[in-house]
């Protein structure tokens, strides 16, 4: 798997030279490989949203360089434009960005701006709608007549239709109930399995990060605090709690059992993993 996105010593300062000057990301070095499913996690104000806006040149770094496929994306208007198509960014509450008369036209907006032929635009809209579970009937409706969950899926389809090599989603589950959250997560997971697109998911839910990603990057105070597999990350629950993040409740249970003197592995973060472990331990103890 080749390197697709790379950040070299990237820093960004808001309002430089004013009393509100704030360095939102500081000296970030990260490399993402093609086909990765990475979760970026951090408390509010940790810099994660500022960070992802560097991935497609929405923000130019105050210092440092961002590369997509080895090319500096901030060289010219042309490279910035190319970066927007290579790396699709789905913002928080994307449903507020819907504006067209029909769902079809809304999803078609991105690919149309790429200058694709009408036939190709149509193909992409249909494929994107299918990927997010929007049926043909809904495509003719006004996006404003849809439910909240459907609107969000349409908004995500609008980005998917540009067929980016990297898909970045900033808190795509925010404000959804457990069922809605599972639907969106399953949809993203299926899309990843099928297309092998590089996915970068920004979230503050450790449970969701653990379930979905093969790598987790933890942001804290504008820097990268931890970077590793879910198991590696959860083994550092002391650091996580200190930086204002929660570990899954089931991990807390295992940590407490360990404190009470039981020989359990505290890097487990799923119910299935905990169940298996507890049953085995019981077998040993009884």
């Amino acid at each position: 798997m080749g390197e697709i996105l790379k950040l070299e010593n990237v820093s960004y300062t808001y309002g430089a030279g004013t009393p509100f000057e704030k360095t939102a990301v500081k000296d970030i070095n990260l490399t993402f490989n093609s086909g990765d499913f990475v979760a970026i996690i951090g408390h509010t104000g940790s810099g994660k949203s500022t960070l992802v806006q560097h991935f497609n040149a929405l923000l130019p770094p105050t210092s440092g360089t961002v590369y997509i496929n080895g090319e500096d994306i901030n060289q010219s208007a042309a490279t910035r434009r190319a970066a927007r198509f290579a790396c699709g960014l789905v913002f928080q509450y994307p449903e507020y960005q819907l504006f067209e008369e029909t769902v079809f036209l809304d999803i078609a907006y991105g690919p149309k701006n790429m200058g694709l032929s009408e036939i190709e635009v149509k193909r992409r809209v249909l494929a994107a709608a299918e990927a997010v579970g929007i049926d043909a009937l809904t495509l003719e409706k006004s996006p404003f007549d849809l439910s909240g969950g459907q609107k969000r899926r349409v908004a995500i389809a609008g980005i998917i239709a540009m067929e980016p090599e990297i898909l970045v989603l900033d808190e795509p589950m925010a404000g959804l109930d457990p069922k809605g959250r599972d639907e969106i997560l399953d949809m993203i997971k299926n899309y990843h399995d099928k297309h092998k697109t590089t996915i970068i998911l920004v979230t503050h839910s450790m449970e969701d990060a653990a379930r979905m990603a093969n790598r987790i990057v933890v942001m804290c105070d504008s820097s990268v605090l931890l970077d590793g597999t879910p198991g590696e990350i959860f083994a550092r629950h002391d650091l996580l709690t200190k930086s204002g993040l929660d570990v899954p409740q089931i991990t807390s249970v295992l940590i407490e059992l360990k404190n009470r003197g039981y020989d359990v592995d505290t890097s487990v973060y799923t119910i299935e993993g905990a169940k298996e472990q507890l049953m085995k331990l019981r077998g040993k103890l009884c």
Binding site: D177, P178, K179, P248, Q249, I250, V253, I271, A274, K275, L278, M279
Partner: peptide
Amino acid sequence: IGLAVPQTVEILDEL
């Protein structure tokens, strides 16, 4: 009905 229970409840039920 699309709701979950806390993981502290879930693990006990699973066991």
